[in-house]
Structures are given as structure tokens and as C-alpha cells.
């Protein structure tokens, strides 16, 4: 379990995450939604120790993420950030091999090669393994970054807006892949999403944030409702049942 205990983070006078306490589960897909500036990405950055917290604590399977050896945390928790831009001139395979760093410290074992091959295969990157990262399209690069996170082989996989810049073909493909990770490999996938309908269709649990605080937390049936969404976003929603999913309309 990931325990988030009274985490507060401010940028200057602006409190971005305000005394948030949450417990993230051992398995399943958890989505965090909310308007821009609600503190979703900041919360994810603090949980993954990329940002320090001003107050509060975060622990992964009992390990304090800020005080424990970083390598131990990296064997349990991985994060995919929004920005897939990279200055390094490396191939897809080399990028995915970096995912083994917490386990191998740069010397790849046969087990590492197997994990890399499996991650490449799982993300359908077989034809692209020797291509340089900077020559790939946005969707391909996103898949390569997901493969690196998979090669890291952690129980908890955190993703910050993984659907950014993806068309619906690639977005749906990626969501299926992430759902499969939770269903077939027993991982806990936690992601920040802007599209409430992807969150609705794929999540076991949805956490909604507004002004740095958690305002809704529950299964899609309880969070994807007109009343709850209006409370989170401050605009009008119509929620329809479509083929068993709860789909929110908010275009007019």
C-alpha cells in the first residue's frame, strides 16, 4: 500500500497540495481527476519523491519514500512523467534497459534482458527496438517510456497524464495496456487523467481533487455523477449510461 499522510506542498504563498491523506491500493487502476491547478500532478510528484513535501509523509509498503534508500523505493514504485522529451540520443532498447537500473546498477543480467524483451513485446515495440528515441512519433515515444517503466517491474506504476498528445487510437491502446497490467500482472496503476470518460471506463477507483484537496473518492459510479462532477469542476455535466460505462457530456 502507498500511505499518504497529511502531505502539504506550496510554491511560495500558493498552497498546491493542502493536507492530503490517502491510501492507494495494492492492485487495480486508480485515476486522479480534477481541474488544472488542483494539485494532482504535484501530489504524484511528491508521492514519487521527485518533489519534496513541506509537511507530511509518504510510505510505500512501509518504506518512507524520502528517507529510505532511493534504490529500494525504485524497486517498488515507478513513475512516468508528462514530459517525454529527452536530450539523450539513445535507442528504444537502450531506454528500456535503463528501467533495469534499480535492479542491476547498469550491468544487465540475463533476467534483465528477459524483462526488457518482455516489456518491449508487451508495448508492441518489436519493430522499433533499434530506432533512436528522438525519431519516434509522440505515441511511439510514449509507448517506449511505458516499456521502460514496465522493465522496472514495480508493484506501483504512477503515470502523470499518460494520454497527453495521444490520438484516440493510441490513447485507448495505452489505457487497455494499463488495464491489462492491473488485471494480468497484479500491479497497482495510479494515474492523473484529464479525460473523465477514460477515467470512468477504466478505473476501479477515482479520486477527484480541487484546490489542493481531495473532494471525491470512490468507484466510478459514485464519482462520475452530474452532482459530483459539477462540484469538482464548477461546470454543468450530463452523465449518460453507454454500453455499461458512465459517460459524461460537457461540450455545450
Amino acid at each position: 500500500m502507498i500511505e499518504i499522510d497529511s502531505v502539504t506542498k506550496s510554491y511560495g504563498p500558493q498552497v498546491v497540495v493542502d493536507d492530503v491523506s490517502l491510501t492507494l491500493p495494492d492492485a487495480g487502476v486508480t485515476s486522479i481527476i480534477g481541474p488544472n491547478g488542483a494539485g494532482k500532478s504535484t501530489l504524484l510528484s511528491v508521492v514519487s519523491r521527485i518533489l519534496g513535501a513541506d509537511a507530511g509523509a509518504v510510505s510505500v509498503e512501509g518504506l518512507d519514500v524520502f528517507r529510505s534508500p532511493s534504490k529500494e523505493v525504485a524497486k517498488r514504485l515507478s513513475i512516468l512523467r508528462q514530459d517525454t522529451h529527452m536530450t539523450a540520443r539513445i535507442t528504444v532498447r537502450e531506454l528500456v534497459e535503463f528501467g533495469r537500473f534499480p535492479h542491476s546498477h547498469g550491468r544487465l543480467t540475463p533476467a534483465c534482458h528477459a524483462a526488457v524483451a518482455e516489456a518491449l513485446d508487451y508495448c508492441d515495440l518489436g519493430d522499433l527496438t533499434e530506432r533512436p528515441i528522438h525519431e519516434l512519433s509522440g505515441g511511439q515515444r510514449q509507448r517506449a517510456c511505458v516499456a521502460m517503466v514496465l522493465a522496472q517491474d514495480t508493484r506501483y506504476v504512477l503515470l502523470d497524464e499518460p494520454l497527453n498528445n495521444l490520438d484516440m487510437v493510441h490513447a485507448t491502446g495505452l489505457m487497455r495496456l494499463l488495464r491489462g497490467l492491473a488485471d494480468h500482472q497484479g500491479k497497482s496503476v495510479v494515474m492523473v487523467l484529464h479525460d473523465v470518460n477514460y477515467a470512468s471506463a477504466y478505473s476501479d477507483r477515482i479520486i477527484a481533487m480541487r484546490d489542493g484537496a481531495v473532494v471525491q473518492d470512490g468507484p466510478p459510479e459514485s464519482v462520475i455523477t452530474e452532482h459530483a462532477l459539477e462540484d469538482v469542476y464548477g461546470m454543468t455535466f450530463r452523465v449518460h449510461a453507454v454500453d455499461g460505462d458512465r459517460i459524461a457530456a460537457y461540450y455545450r
Binding site: R49, I50, R81, L95, G106
Partner: peptide, 14 residues
């Protein structure tokens, strides 16, 4: 080598 991926990825990799 890991640092070439940038600060955030390097931290994420432990």
C-alpha cells in the same frame, strides 16, 4: 548514464 535521462527520470530509477 542514468543522469543523461534528466533529473526526474534519474530519481525515478533510484
Amino acid at each position: 548514464d542514468v543522469l543523461t535521462l534528466g533529473r526526474e527520470r534519474a530519481i525515478a530509477l533510484g
